[in-house]
Design a protein around this nucleic acid. Structure first.
Length: 338
DNA sequence: ATGTCGATTACTGGTCGCAG
DNA sequence: CTGCGACCAGTAATCGACAT
């Protein structure tokens, strides 16, 4: 039986109200190639002088002291416990716990089973990071450490999420479980890491971002400077990025391709006037559309429309709506003059 | 890797005239 | 009326060279 020694201002006090609320949940977290299943997840209080005799588990038990004092023997080494300390008892670690003779000792406990379950579809970066963390977890020294990275508040957050039943609370709780694992490792860790977070190929990312932005905004007089500004780059640097990705297609060419593709689409499937199409697809005038279209497609827009629409009538089943190849670079009788 | 500058080239927008 | 082509001046894009 546990006895509570409440004190005003103890942030975890609320966790005594529904002590087993987290344990009633079946919590499983997949992390890289590991599955972490929560067995116990609670706040408990040991009355003064209370002893938990030597025992061990086949699983991982994370212990945190949010209040009070006591003693733990890990293996054969005794250590004193005080507010703010944590320790881990991994599989097979014999341990003995005792609350101070004069004062109670509270303990936040997360008891988990961790099983390796290889999963080929897992993100390799996450897998590498989880692997490194598990190696560190298995090599943690058998001694208490200060909760320097704030693992204990994760207990309270998990409890509050569970109690509130707010949207996403199960995910929130699982994140707190991972948080407790990580912060425990960090409490012992020197800070060096063998794995790095995934980094982007910045040129490819910027190119992709720029093209997407152009596709979404090409009708509104888009300029190199506008796109560069979106990427927080100089126009010159954006030009270099376009040149680096595809030497043959600078900014203006990519923009022109996007516009021509839309024009071709309208010519093939609609009956809008050339002037109206030019207006809708970002060409200042029909005259300019004619110039560009002829240069790239080898014919005028109206000739193209006649040819494509008669083609559609001859082979309606070959080109269902929405699956028409309207690339300006298509190879046909109207191949653009590159 | 990125920014600035300057020379060069290409694009843009307006206008006009011609043809069907 | 619509589509098309030509012309021209202003603007934007391109790119090498150089600096940070």
């Amino acid at each position: 039986m546990t006895v509570r020694f409440a004190r005003a201002g103890f942030p975890y006090e609320a966790m005594f109200d529904k002590g087993d609320i987290l344990e009633r949940l079946d919590i499983a977290v997949h992390w890289g190639h590991y599955e972490i299943r929560v067995l116990r997840f609670h706040l408990t209080s040991f009355e003064p002088g209370r002893i938990i005799n030597f025992h061990n588990h086949s699983t991982y038990e994370f212990h945190f002291i949010p209040r009070g004092a006591g003693r733990v023997i890990l293996g054969d080494q005794p250590h004193s416990l005080s507010e703010g300390l944590l320790y881990l008892t991994g599989p097979g670690v014999m341990h003995y716990q005792e609350a101070d003779g004069a004062q109670a000792m509270d303990e936040l406990c997360l008891h988990v089973d961790i099983v390796r379950r290889p999963n080929p579809s897992v993100d390799p970066w996450e897998a590498a990071e989880a692997e490194e963390c598990m190696q560190k977890l298995n090599a943690l020294p058998l001694r208490p450490a200060a909760d320097s990275h704030g693992a204990m508040p994760c207990f309270l957050q998990a409890y509050e999420a569970c109690e509130s039943k707010r949207i996403g609370y199960y995910t929130d709780i699982r994140m707190q479980v991972i948080g407790i694992l990580l912060k425990t490792i960090q409490a012992y860790d020197s800070g060096d890491t063998g794995t790095e977070a995934p980094s982007r190929d910045m040129a490819a990312y910027r190119y992709d971002y720029a093209v997407r932005y152009m596709e979404a905004n090409y009708t509104s007089g888009l300029r190199l400077e506008d796109v560069a500004e979106k990427l927080d780059l100089s126009p010159r640097q954006l030009q270099r990025i376009f040149r680096g990705v595809d030497r043959e297609r600078p900014f203006s060419r990519v923009l022109e391709d996007i516009r021509l593709q839309a024009v071709c689409d309208r010519l093939r499937t609609g009956s809008l006037s050339i002037e109206r199409i030019a207006e809708l697809e970002g060409f200042s005038t029909a005259a300019y559309l004619h110039t560009v279209f002829r240069k790239r497609m080898g014919s005028s827009p109206s000739v193209y429309r006649k040819a494509k629409q008669s083609e559609l009538h001859r082979h309606p089943a070959d080109t269902p709506p929405g699956q028409i190849d309207h690339s300006p670079n298509e190879v046909n009788i109207y191949e653009p003059n590159v």
